[in-house]
Design a protein around this nucleic acid. Structure first.
Length: 151
DNA sequence: GCCAACGTTGGC
DNA sequence: GCCAACGTTGGC
């Protein structure tokens, strides 16, 4: 089993939005970065643990715990010309983008980015490295356990 | 294959 | 809104 941190803009899908979804589950659509796609397509498996992170907002930080509920399949938004994530180079025969489904485990208190930054135990997290923009990053099992213990 | 220009991310 | 950092595009 692996551990991941997944960024979502709360104005798009917040932890409360996730909690309100049918089955408290959501398709992680719209990833248009190859590294993040490859994580979903090649490595993420149902049962993998996810830190649900709020980004690009007033209070960036970890907002809850989730898990992968469905393994990767073609992202439907790439085929829809009216969707903002439409990709003219993708076809159903040769899809380019994939997404997993993610299911809520529990909403937690918000652990702000500033707090994460303050723990020496978490200093190696990808999210803290300068210039990091990747929306899906692997998390070390020890880092994950540390965070859960401090939520 | 190089690399300049451009677009996006995301914290502040 | 600013801007650093990074990824992608496309001409050559």
């Amino acid at each position: 089993m692996r551990y991941w941190l997944m960024k979502s803009e709360p104005s798009d899908v917040s932890i409360d939005d996730l909690a309100a979804m049918p089955n408290q589950s959501v398709a992680w659509y719209g990833v248009r970065n190859y590294q993040a796609r490859n994580f979903m397509r090649d490595q993420m498996k149902p049962g993998d643990k996810v830190l649900f992170y709020h980004s690009s907002c007033a209070q960036p930080g970890i907002a809850g715990l989730a898990e992968v509920s469905v393994r990767a399949y073609p992202d439907a938004t790439q085929f829809d010309p009216r969707n903002e994530y439409f990709d003219p180079k993708a076809t159903p025969e040769t899809p380019r983008w994939f997404n997993v489904d993610v299911k809520l485990v529990r909403k937690t208190r918000l652990m702000p980015l500033s707090e994460i930054r303050g723990y020496p135990e978490l200093a190696n997290m990808r999210i803290l490295q300068r210039g990091n923009r990747l929306s899906i990053t692997p998390v070390d099992p020890l880092e994950y356990a540390f965070i859960v213990r401090h939520l």
